[in-house]
Computed example of a mutant assay.
Amino acid sequence: MRSIYQTILEQIRSGSKTVLATVVNTTGSTPQKPGSSALFGEHGLLAGTVGGGMIEGEIQHIAESVLISGASDHFYFNLDSDQGDKGAICGGEAGVLVDADPSLHLAALEGLEHALSISAEGFLLTVVSQKYDQGRSIRRYWINSARSEDLPTGMDQAFKEVVESHLKQALRYGFTKIDLQILPAHQVKMAFLEHIKPMPHLVIVGGGHVGKALAHLGTLLEFEVSVVDDRPEYASREHIPDADHLVVNEIGKALHELEPGTNTYIVIVTRGHSYDGEALRACIGSEAAFIGMIGSKHKVEIMKKQFLEEGWATPEQWSAIHTPIGLPIGSQTVQEIAISIAAQLVKVRSRKKEAYGE
Results as ranks from 00 to 15, higher is better:
H209T: 08
V210A: 07
V210S: 10
V210M: 06
V210N: 06
G211Y: 06
G211P: 00
K212P: 00
K212H: 12
H216S: 13
L217Q: 03
T219P: 02
L220E: 00
L220M: 12
E222Y: 00
F223K: 01
E224V: 02
V225F: 04
V225Q: 04
V227S: 01
V228F: 07
D229N: 09
D230P: 08
D230N: 15
R231A: 04
P232T: 11
P232A: 13
P232H: 09
E233D: 10
E233W: 06
Y234P: 08
Y234F: 15
A235Y: 13
A235C: 13
R237Y: 07
R237M: 11
R237E: 14
R237V: 14
E238I: 08
E238L: 14
E238P: 02
H239W: 13
D242Q: 14
D242H: 13
A243I: 06
A243K: 03
D244R: 05
D244E: 09
H245C: 07
H245D: 09
H245A: 12
V247M: 10
V247L: 15
V248T: 15
V248N: 01
V248D: 08
E250F: 14
E250Y: 15
I251S: 11
G252F: 09
G252K: 07
K253I: 11
K253C: 04
L255K: 08
E257Q: 15
E257G: 03
E257V: 07
P260Q: 07
T262V: 11
T262Y: 01
T264K: 01
T264C: 03
T264Y: 01
V267R: 02
V269I: 11
R271K: 11
R271H: 14
G272R: 07
H273R: 04
S274V: 09
S274A: 13
D276T: 00
D276Y: 05
